[in-house]
Simulated scan of single mutants.
Amino acid sequence: MDQQIKAFRIFDASAGSGKTFTLAREYLSLILRPGGGRLFRRILAITFTNKAVAELKNRILNSLMEFASLSPENLETTPMFEAVQAELQTDRAALIHRSQTVLQQILHNYAFFDVSTIDKFNQRVLRTFARDLDIPANFEIVLETDVLLEEAIDNLIAQAGTDKQLTDILVDFALEKAEDDRSW
Results as ranks from 00 to 15, higher is better:
residue 180 D to E: 07
residue 83 A to F: 12
residue 39 L to E: 12
residue 83 A to G: 09
residue 173 F to Q: 10
residue 96 I to G: 12
residue 162 T to H: 08
residue 18 G to F: 14
residue 119 D to T: 02
residue 168 D to C: 12
residue 120 K to Y: 04
residue 180 D to H: 05
residue 136 P to D: 07
residue 81 F to I: 10
residue 94 A to T: 13
residue 150 E to G: 15
residue 123 Q to D: 06
residue 53 V to P: 05
residue 79 P to W: 08
residue 50 N to L: 00
residue 34 P to L: 02
residue 154 D to T: 06
residue 31 I to S: 02
residue 47 T to C: 00
residue 21 F to G: 12
residue 15 A to D: 09
residue 26 E to K: 05
residue 33 R to Q: 10
residue 48 F to R: 03
residue 62 N to H: 13
residue 62 N to K: 14
residue 76 E to M: 05
residue 29 S to G: 12
residue 164 K to I: 12
residue 25 R to L: 11
residue 5 I to K: 02
residue 4 Q to T: 10
residue 49 T to I: 02
residue 35 G to E: 13
residue 62 N to D: 15
residue 178 A to M: 10
residue 69 S to F: 14
residue 28 L to N: 07
residue 181 D to C: 08
residue 139 F to R: 07
residue 130 A to G: 00
residue 110 Y to I: 11
residue 22 T to I: 13
residue 96 I to R: 13
residue 141 I to T: 05
residue 163 D to S: 05
residue 170 L to W: 07
residue 164 K to L: 14
residue 109 N to T: 02
residue 156 L to A: 09
residue 11 F to M: 10
residue 137 A to R: 06
residue 102 V to T: 04
residue 181 D to M: 05
residue 132 D to R: 02
residue 49 T to K: 09
residue 21 F to S: 14
residue 141 I to C: 05
residue 17 S to W: 13
residue 123 Q to L: 01
residue 105 Q to L: 06
residue 153 I to Y: 13
residue 124 R to P: 09
residue 94 A to C: 09
residue 178 A to G: 09
residue 88 L to T: 07
residue 64 L to Q: 11
residue 56 L to M: 07
residue 27 Y to A: 00
residue 148 L to G: 14
residue 120 K to S: 08
residue 102 V to Q: 04
residue 21 F to N: 15
residue 148 L to N: 13
residue 47 T to S: 03
residue 129 F to G: 05
residue 19 K to N: 09
residue 172 D to G: 13
residue 180 D to F: 01
residue 68 A to W: 15
residue 173 F to G: 09
residue 176 E to C: 01
residue 91 D to W: 03
residue 53 V to Y: 01
residue 109 N to W: 01
residue 71 S to D: 15
residue 162 T to W: 03
residue 142 V to R: 04
residue 25 R to E: 10
residue 162 T to M: 10
